[in-house]
Simulated scan of single mutants.
Amino acid sequence: MIERLSATPEGIAAAAALLDAGGIAAFPTDTVYGIGCRAGDDAALARLFAAKRRPAEKQVPILAASLEQASALGYAVDDRVRALAARWWPGPLTLVLGAQEGAASRSQAFRVPDHPVALSLIERSGPLATSSANRSGEPETYDADDVLVAFADDDLLDAVVDGGRAPGGRASTVIDMSGPGARIVREGPITREQLAETVGRID
């Protein structure tokens, strides 16, 4: 049975403890509800993919509370990345960062969500590998009731933090900063022109 937790300090602490123990939880973000597990917990990530019925070879982004959390996982942060994060985080910008020694993959997408519940949870639990809280190919979820319906037929999702209705909106802009240049991977709310004001030329 999926545990429904309130978006209070006590509920967020309970969700963080569940994540620390290898669980997976859903929570609101600044677009839709997400489903996440501790970054680097391979067993929990496998459960997340199983819950979504999504191929395990597809990488998922990591939601962090700060650029320092991304760097601590072994990914490269340079002056361009710092400038982008200073201007657009928290917010609708996903940064793809290149690996340094000790990183789990050659590159990784990171974002800091602009939502108080998500940020509170990540600050307590650490960075979370996160995907949208829905079965692969099915509609996205916008509140805890949606999540409970979407994952009702198995026991892979442990809990949902009920933070009210997520605001919706466009998915984030994704920019690849893992190499010497900058490349737009996905258009979103932040335009190429706005990004170029910060990093200069974009391929």
Rank of each mutant, 00 (worst) to 15 (best):
V32R: 01
Q69V: 11
A39I: 11
S66P: 07
L48I: 11
L63V: 12
E57K: 14
D30E: 09
A46S: 12
G40C: 08
G23L: 00
G40M: 10
R38F: 10
G34S: 05
A43V: 15
A70G: 03
D42C: 11
A64L: 02
Q69K: 10
P61L: 15
T31F: 02
A46W: 01
Y75W: 09
A25M: 09
A44C: 12
T29M: 06
A50V: 04
D41Y: 06
Y33A: 00
A44T: 06
T29H: 03
K52V: 03
R47W: 07
G34I: 00
G74R: 08
G34R: 00
P61K: 07
G34M: 00
L73K: 02
L73P: 03
A51L: 13
C37A: 06
L48K: 05
A39W: 05
A70H: 02
L18S: 10
R38W: 11
L73E: 01
F49G: 12
A46Y: 01
A65D: 09
A44V: 10
A51K: 05
V32E: 04
E68R: 15
A44R: 08
Y75F: 11
Y75M: 05
D20S: 15
G36S: 08
I62N: 01
L48T: 09
K58A: 10
R54A: 04
G36Q: 09
L63K: 03
D41W: 13
A70C: 10
L73F: 03
A50C: 09
K52W: 00
L67R: 06
R53A: 13
E57N: 13
G34N: 01
D42Y: 11
Y33M: 07
L18C: 15
A21S: 12
I24T: 04
Q59R: 14
L48S: 05
A56H: 13
G34Y: 00
D20P: 07
T29A: 12
D30I: 08
L19R: 03
S66A: 15
D42T: 12
I24C: 07
R38P: 07
F49M: 14
E68G: 14
S66H: 09
A64F: 07
A39T: 14
I62H: 05
L63C: 07
K52D: 01
A70R: 02
P61T: 11
R53I: 02
P55H: 06
A64R: 02
P61C: 05
F49A: 11
S66W: 11
Y75Q: 07
C37D: 06
P28I: 08
V60A: 09
C37T: 08
G23Y: 00
R38N: 10
G22M: 04
Y33G: 02
L19Y: 06
S71H: 14
I35E: 01
D42E: 13
L45M: 14
E68M: 14
T29W: 00
D42M: 13
A26W: 02
A46E: 12
G23H: 01
A76C: 15
L19P: 00
D30P: 05
R53E: 13
A70D: 00
A51N: 09
G36R: 09
A65N: 04
I62R: 00
K58I: 12
I62G: 04
G36M: 09
G34A: 02
A64V: 15
L63H: 14
A50F: 05
R54M: 10
A70Y: 01
T29C: 06
L48H: 04
A72F: 03
C37Y: 00
